[in-house]
Design a binder for these strands. Structure first.
Lengths: 233, 233
DNA sequence: TTTATAGGTGTATAGCTTACACAAATAAAA
DNA sequence: TTTTATTTGTGTAAGCTATACACCTATAAA
């Protein structure tokens, strides 16, 4: 037996929702599509899955092509499979969302794609069903960030508590009391205070912190505490 | 322009992780695979996505074929795309998990597939990477149930609080204090007390409840409360 | 030297979560 | 008919967590 000979084969693509944070606003990286259909319109970075690569590899490859970054936070989100989503030919798309440190992003690479960062709240019109994909990513980042410390992925290695707070406020679109916020994040044991300050944001300067990687990995999978002794199912 | 002519096409399948609850144990419905390779071995219900159906439709079709059920809780889980996961030919599989009321399940339909319910904790060896798929479903049901009232999908329309508690205890593999449990579920406003009792489980009998559908839909998307005023992003 | 701006910190209150024990109902057994 | 065994159903006190809230500090710029 060599093939499932009677079955129809389809195109499979990946699309990446790439998010970054510039200290003020959550942003999304979009490219100008360089082939038909919809050539020249704003689009997510993506492409067809190749015969010899897994889907995860395809997503990582696309992310690296556009940003130069490897080893960043990249999570499979949802697979979109309506029959007519691509008008040319049926294409199923597996979406991924990536959280990157916007400072490490290599600007020159993205010039080939005419890429641009847009505030997530003011995303331009996107091709096909990509609006829906971005919407799914917005939901997912909140959902996940509410329980896991993923937002740290968006910050540089050294960051200040006010920066972290601004990020949370922008993801959850809400104001948080700074006394309570700092109590809370410090209580997690995730942060190590450094000796130096960031003087860019204010006259007084804010102390830098870095992640306590050990506690970070330990807390990463931490799940809700409202069931006593959650144990393996 | 008619096709993306240079690209490789591949097979796309769906696999369903079908869970049910018999009042004591969380169970998974498996079939004996009826074609090569791995013919005769235990497997998830699934099959190839057809050219004229969406992926969601393919999952619903498979679920209906095996159980006779439509309109049940069915959620896309994850897409598995390792290049060698199917030894015959590269096949990408989109997994779904379904929560069904085991009493509505139509036994005779599943005889064609030689289907059987297994305790989720004692799932037999499965083909390909399906063990991993089941593992992902186990994680997801807990994750989701911790925040959304999805476990009601596993119960009949009329159920008792002790039944509900047994279900939560079996999903989270833990003992819960019944006074606290009943206080909590009643406080959600999700339950409507009925006049009659279930006398099967005990001498005294336990009052039946049914879902308050209005509150159910309202609470369904309810997300964590540890961010003040969560608003649209 | 003054002023303007953002950073950093403590406490009291309310609300929520947890731990915990006994009586009621009734079928089955004696 | 009485006793026994089993499961249901309920309240309260203590500890913990979340929240609301205001002032001083550091420093660059004027």
């Amino acid at each position: 037996m060599h093939k499932y000979s009677k079955q129809t084969r389809l195109l499979l693509a990946v699309d990446c929702i790439i998010l970054g944070f510039d200290g003020e606003t959550l942003k999304i990286l979009l490219i100008k599509r360089d082939f038909q259909p919809e050539k020249g319109n704003w689009s997510l970075m993506g492409g067809f899955v190749q015969p010899e690569e897994s889907i995860d590899q395809a997503a990582n490859r696309n992310l690296k092509q556009l940003t130069g970054l490897q080893g960043v936070y990249l999570e499979q989100l949802h697979t979109f499979g309506a029959t007519k989503r691509d008008p040319i030919e049926r294409t199923v798309s597996v979406t991924y969302f990536a959280l990157i440190d916007i400072n490490k992003y290599q600007t020159q690479l993205s010039q080939d794609y005419h890429a641009e960062w847009f505030p997530l709240k003011r995303t331009p019109k996107l091709i096909f069903d990509q609006q829906e994909m971005v919407e799914a990513a917005r939901k997912q980042i909140r959902y996940k960030a509410a329980m896991h410390p993923i937002l740290f992925e968006l910050l540089p290695t050294k960051f200040t508590i006010p920066q972290l707070q601004t990020l949370y406020e922008s993801v959850f679109n809400t104001a948080i009391d700074k006394r309570n916020f700092s109590k809370r994040v410090l209580a997690t044991g995730l942060l190590i205070k450094l000796a130096d300050k960031d003087k860019a944001g204010s006259k007084r300067g804010a102390f830098y912190y870095q992640l306590n990687m050990q506690n970070y990995y330990a807390k990463f999978q931490a799940i809700m505490n409202f069931i006593p002794n959650p144990d393996t199912l």
